[in-house]
Design a protein around this nucleic acid. Structure first.
Length: 875
RNA sequence: GGGUCUGUAGCUCAGUUGGUUAGAGCGCUACAUUGACAUUGUAGAGGUCUCCAGUUCGAAUCUGGACAGACCCACCA
C-alpha cells in the first residue's frame, strides 16, 4: 500500500525541515508569552515559569557545553509552555570583559599591534566590532539548536538598559559604604596588566628550587629570593622552644643581600613550626599572608617588584632586571657572602597563574575598588552582611541546588570569601561611574556637572554586571510588569564550574538590591567531554562542533545525545556513536509516522479500546505519560527521555504496531502516536513538529503550543494485564525457537491452557495467537486444560503453553533443560519459603511486599508442578 | 593540607525511602530480511554489584575501614 501522502519519504532528512520549522515557530510569535496569552493558549493568571539564559560570552562560537545547556533549558521551557504555564525564556549575551579584550588583543598581536597603539577609543571600537560578529554567530547557532527563546526580550550585559542597572547598583552600594576604594593586596597579572579576582586564578604545580638562606642567627627557606630585599621582619611561633631567647619586638642587625639591615622579631601563631626551621621573613607587598600579618602588627610595607615584573631601586644593582633573570644572580651573590646553606632542587609547590593570560600572578598592594562582604548593616531588624545573606538564602532552603551536594561546596566557598576586588585595568567593560576633580570624588549614574572632572579609567569585573542578570534583564531598576511577573526566576540552569563566579554573585546582588532570591532552583549541569572522558580542547583536536553535528545528524539527534545519560552535577561523554544511535531513533520515529500515515484518517476520532492489545497500549501510555511528567517535574530529564524511548521503541513499535498489522484499530494507533509526538516534542522539537505538520498542516497552531497530554485512559487494567502475560508467553515461545534452532519457516503448534479460576483466555487474546501465526510463526491449535503429550512447556504468570515439537526436538535434551529449570525453581522456592517463615520478616516488612512475595511463591509452586507433570509426560 | 564525588556486564551507565531470580543501550554471537524503518527485527551469551568488617530477618543500597580513580578549595615560607 502506498502512503496516502506520497511525499512521505522513507528517511527523515533533518536539514530539509529544521530551518523551515524554526521560521514557522518564530513567525507564530509563541516564543513570546504575551503572544500565547493573546492567542488564548496561556491564561493571564497562569503560574509563571521563567529561565534567563546564561549569557554566552561574545568571544567566538558556541561549543558542546552551550549546546547541552540549550537542550536542557529548551526541554524544560517547552514542557512548561505546553503544560499551560506563563513561560518565559529570556536570551542574551555577555560582554565578558577580560576574555573578550584579551581575544582581541591576541588578534591585534597577530597584526603586530598593541591596544596602546590604537588608543582607548579606537581599541574599543575594534572590540565592539568583534563582539558584534561573535554575537551574530552565537544567535545563529542558538537558533539552530531549536531554542524557543523570546528574542523580543534579548539583552546584552553592556547595552543601554544593563548599563543603567550597573550604574544604579554601583551607586547604591557606594552610597551604602558597601563599595569602597582602598589600598589592599590584589592579584596582579603582569602580562594582562590588570588585577584579577581570586576565582580567576589557576594553581599549577611546579617543581622549583627551595633556597635555604642564613638570616642572622636564623635559617629561612624561600623559593623567591628576588622578593627578599626588603625583608626586615622575621617571624616565629611564640611557643617554639628553639627561639625562646628572642622576644616579640626585639631587633638585631643581620647581614643581607645588599649589606646589613635591622631585623625585627615578630611572634605569631600562624607559623608552622614543622616547616623548615620554623622561621620565616615576610614580604607584605607581594604576599597575601604576609600582608595580613603586616596589617595585624602595623608593619612597614615596601614594594620590591613593579607592575611589569621588574625589580625596583631597592634591589640595588639588580634594579630594572626581570624576576626570572635576577633570581640566579641574587643567589650567586648570597652564596658569595656565604649566606646560602642549602638548595633543595625538588621543591614542589603550587604557583598562582592568571586564567586568561597564563602569567604568574604577582600579588601587589594597589588602590582598587572592593565590595565589602563582611560589613554589617541592618535588614528586617537584624544585623546582616553580604556573606550572611548569601548563606541564608541556601541554608533556609529558599534556593535549592541540584544536586544538593553542592551546598557544602557553596558554604565552604563563602566561609573563605574575602572582599571582592571589582576594578579592572582594562578598557572593555563598564567604566567605573566615579569622577574625580582634585580631591573631590563624585559617584553617579551620569557624569557630574561642571568642568575639570575625569572619570576613573578602570572598568568593572565582568561578574558585577552578570550578577544583576536575573533582574537587569527584566527591566530593573524600573518596576516593570516583566519584573513583577517573572522575578524571582524559576530555574537557573548552568555549569557547576561557574557556581562561584556567577551563581553566588547573583545571589549576593539579588539579596542586596531586592531582598529576594534570584531563582528558586539551580540546576547545575556537568561538562561535556569526549568519548574518553577528556575535556574538549583545540590542542587535543577532540572538539565536537554543534553546527557540524546538526549538519550531519540533525539538531534532534544532538539534543538527545546531550540529554540522555546526563544528570545534574555529572560530566557527560559525547561520541559520534552516541549521536548516530539517536539519529537512528529519530528516523525510527519518523517511520512510525510513515506507518501510521498508511491508515491515518485526519479528523478527531475518539480512540476506543477493542482488543486486549488496545487496552494494554492505552494503559501503558497513561502510565508512561504520568511517569514522564513526574520525571520532568523533578528535573529528571534523562530518566524522562529514557522512559519515553523504551516505551516508544520496545512497546509501541515492536509490539503494538506489529499487532496492528493483524488486528487493526486505527483510532487507537493514531491516538497513541499523536500523544507520543506531544510527549517527545520538548526533547526533539523538529522531527515531532515535522510529523505533526505532515499529518495536519497548521502553521497557526503548531505542535509546540498544543496541550501537554493528561495521564488518563479509557482502557481497563485487567485486559492490559492479560495482554502483558500474552506478550511474555510469546517471548518464551520465541526463545524456545532460538534454543532448538527451529527454522523460521516452520510453524510451531501451541496449546495454551489456563486454569478455570485463573486468568482465562478470552476470545480476543485467543485470536491474537491465531493472528500472530503469521508474525511469529506460532500456531495455536487449541486451548485446553490438559497437558498434551510429547511437548515443550513454557509459561508466563499463570498462562502455560505446550509446544508440540516431537519431530524437531530431542527429548533427552528437553528433559535436561526441564531438570535444570526444576532445580532453579526449587532453590527459588526455598529462598521464598525461608523468607516467609521468618517471624521478623512477617512482622516488619510492608504488607504489599509480603503479599507480593506470597504471590511469587504461589506462581513458583504452580510452575514447579507443571514442570513435574511435564517431566512425567516426557518419560 | 581541607573538602566533595565515583567504583554494578567488554564499554557507557540506570538502580527513588534496604525487600522481584540485579537492569538498559552499545559491542559480541546466532538467526531472519521484497514488509513503515537494512538508520531493521528475534533470540542468546556475558555480573562474587572493588575488597574487608559491621548493623539487619534481609545489603548493590545503611555504617566503619582498606584500595583505586575523578574533581573542587587552599600562596607551608
Amino acid at each position: 500500500m502506498e502512503p496516502k501522502n506520497t511525499t512521505f519519504p522513507s528517511t527523515y532528512t533533518a536539514s530539509d525541515w529544521e530551518d523551515r520549522l524554526y521560521t514557522l515557530w518564530e513567525k507564530s510569535g509563541f516564543f513570546n508569552p504575551d503572544e500565547c496569552i493573546k492567542a488564548g493558549i496561556t491564561k493571564v493568571d497562569a503560574e509563571p515559569f521563567s529561565i534567563v539564559l546564561p549569557p554566552p560570552n561574545v568571544t567566538g562560537t558556541l561549543h558542546a557545553g552551550h549546546a547541552s545547556m540549550l537542550a536542557i533549558e529548551d526541554i524544560l521551557i517547552r514542557f512548561k509552555r505546553m503544560s499551560g504555564y506563563r513561560t518565559l525564556w529570556l536570551p542574551g549575551t555577555d560582554h565578558a570583559a577580560i576574555a573578550t579584550q584579551s581575544k582581541v588583543e591576541k588578534l591585534l598581536a597577530g597584526e603586530g599591534k598593541t591596544r596602546a597603539d590604537l588608543g582607548r577609543e579606537a581599541f574599543l571600537k575594534r572590540v565592539e566590532q568583534f563582539a558584534q560578529e561573535s554575537h551574530d554567530t552565537i544567535i545563529h547557532q542558538t537558533k539552530k539548536m531549536g531554542s524557543s527563546l523570546d528574542w523580543s526580550r534579548e539583552a546584552y550585559t553592556l547595552d543601554e538598559k544593563r548599563t543603567l542597572a550597573v550604574r544604579t547598583a554601583f551607586k547604591k552600594m557606594y552610597d551604602d559604604g558597601i563599595i569602597y576604594r582602598g589600598n589592599r593586596i590584589v592579584n596582579w597579572d603582569p602580562v594582562g596588566q590588570t588585577t584579577i579576582s581570586d576565582d580567576e586564578i589557576v594553581y599549577q604545580e611546579e617543581t622549583a628550587k627551595l633556597y635555604y638562606l642564613k638570616y642572622g642567627p636564623f635559617e629561612i627557606a624561600t623559593a623567591r629570593p628576588e622578593t627578599k630585599f626588603g625583608d626586615k621582619y622575621v617571624v616565629m611561633h611564640p611557643e617554639d622552644e628553639r627561639y625562646q631567647q628572642y622576644a616579640h619586638g626585639d631587633t638585631l642587625t643581620v647581614e643581607w643581600i645588599n649589606g646589613p639591615i635591622e631585623a625585627t622579631i615578630i611572634k605569631d601563631e600562624m607559623i608552622d613550626r614543622e616547616f623548615g626551621t620554623g622561621v620565616m621573613t615576610i614580604t607584605p607587598w607581594h604576599s597575601h599572608v604576609d600582608f595580613d600579618l603586616a596589617q595585624k602588627y602595623h608593619l612597614d610595607m615596601e614594594q620590591i617588584i613593579d607592575q611589569s615584573g621588574h625589580l625596583l631601586p631597592i634591589a640595588g644593582e639588580f634594579a630594572g632586571k626581570p624576576i626570572s633573570e635576577a633570581r640566579e644572580h641574587i643567589i650567586a651573590k648570597l652564596a658569595g657572602k656565604g649566606l646560602v646553606t642549602k638548595i633543595d632542587e625538588s621543591y614542589v609547590h603550587q604557583i598562582a597563574t592568571a586564567e586568561r593570560s597564563g602569567a604568574t600572578v604577582e600579588p601587589q598592594i594597589m588602590r582598587q575598588w572592593f565590595i565589602n562582604v563582611t560589613k554589617e548593616f541592618p535588614r528586617d531588624g537584624k544585623t546582616v552582611t553580604l556573606k550572611s545573606l548569601m548563606q541564608d538564602a541556601v541554608r533556609q532552603e529558599k534556593i535549592h541546588l541540584l544536586p544538593e551536594r553542592f551546598n557544602k561546596t557553596y558554604f565552604n566557598w563563602i566561609d573563605n570569601l574575602r572582599d571582592w576586588c571589582i576594578s579592572r585595568q582594562i578598557w572593555f567593560g563598564h567604566q567605573i561611574p566615579v569622577w574625580y576633580r582634585g580631591e573631590e570624588v563624585f559617584c553617579g549614574i551620569e557624569a557630574p556637572e561642571g568642568t575639570g572632572w575625569t572619570q576613573d579609567p578602570d572598568t568593572l569585573d565582568t561578574w558585577f554586571s552578570s550578577g544583576l542578570w536575573t533582574f537587569s534583564t527584566l527591566g530593573w531598576p524600573k518596576t516593570t510588569d516583566d519584573f513583577q511577573t517573572y522575578h524571582p526566576t524559576t530555574v537557573l540552569e548552568t555549569g557547576y564550574d561557574i557556581l562561584f563566579f556567577w551563581v553566588a554573585r547573583m545571589i549576593l546582588m539579588s539579596e542586596y538590591f531586592l531582598a529576594d532570591i534570584p531563582f528558586k532552583t539551580v540546576y547545575l549541569h556537568g561538562l561535556v567531554r569526549d568519548e574518553q572522558g577528556r575535556k574538549m580542547s583545540k590542542s587535543l583536536g577532540n572538539i565536537i562542533d554543534p553546527l557540524d553535528v546538526i549538519a550531519d545528524y540533525g539538531a534532534d539527534a544532538l539534543r538527545l545525545s546531550l540529554v540522555i545519560g546526563s544528570t545534574p552535577g555529572n560530566d557527560l561523554k559525547l561520541s559520534t556513536e552516541k549521536i548516530t544511535s539517536y539519529r537512528n531513533f529519530v528516523n525510527k520515529l519518523w517511520n512510525m509516522g510513515r506507518y501510521v500515515s498508511l491508515s491515518f484518517d485526519a479528523g478527531n476520532v475518539t480512540p476506543k479500546a477493542k482488543n486486549v492489545s488496545d487496552h494494554w497500549i492505552l494503559t501503558r501510555l497513561a502510565e508512561v505519560t504520568a511517569e514522564v511528567t513526574a520525571h520532568l517535574d523533578h528535573y529528571n530529564i534523562s530518566l524522562a527521555s529514557e522512559t519515553l524511548r523504551d516505551f516508544t521503541w520496545n512497546e509501541f513499535a515492536d509490539w503494538y504496531i506489529e499487532i496492528h498489522k493483524i488486528e487493526k484499530n486505527d483510532a487507537v494507533l493514531a491516538h497513541v502516536f499523536m500523544t507520543l509526538l506531544k510527549l517527545w516534542h520538548p526533547f526533539m522539537p523538529f522531527v515531532t513538529e515535522a510529523l505533526f505538520q505532515t499529518f495536519a498542516p497548521n502553521e497557526k497552531n503548531p505542535l509546540m503550543i498544543t496541550a501537554w497530554p493528561k495521564a488518563d485512559t479509557l482502557a481497563t487494567k485487567d485486559d492490559a494485564e492479560q495482554f502483558k502475560l500474552v506478550i511474555k508467553l510469546i517471548q518464551e515461545i520465541r526463545a524456545i525457537r532460538s534454543i532448538y534452532q527451529i527454522e523460521p519457516a516452520k510453524k510451531i503448534a501451541v496449546t495454551v491452557t489456563a486454569g478455570a479460576n485463573e486468568i482465562t483466555l478470552t476470545q480476543n487474546n485467543g485470536a491474537i495467537f491465531q493472528h500472530l501465526a503469521r508474525l511469529s510463526e506460532i500456531h495455536v491449535i487449541a486451548t485446553a486444560a490438559d497437558t498434551p503429550q510429547n511437548s515443550i512447556i513454557v509459561q508466563a504468570g499463570l498462562l502455560r503453553a505446550y509446544i508440540e515439537l516431537a519431530d524437531v526436538v530431542d527429548f533427552e535434551k528437553e528433559k535436561k533443560r526441564l531438570l535444570k529449570e526444576k532445580q532453579d525453581k526449587e532453590r527459588y522456592i526455598t529462598t521464598l519459603e525461608t523468607k516467609l517463615q521468618n517471624k521478623n520478616f512477617i512482622e516488619r516488612a510492608k504488607p504489599e511486599i509480603i503479599a507480593a512475595e506470597k504471590t511469587k511463591l504461589e506462581e513458583a509452586h504452580k510452575h514447579l508442578s507443571d514442570i513435574d507433570h511435564h517431566l512425567t509426560s516426557l518419560s
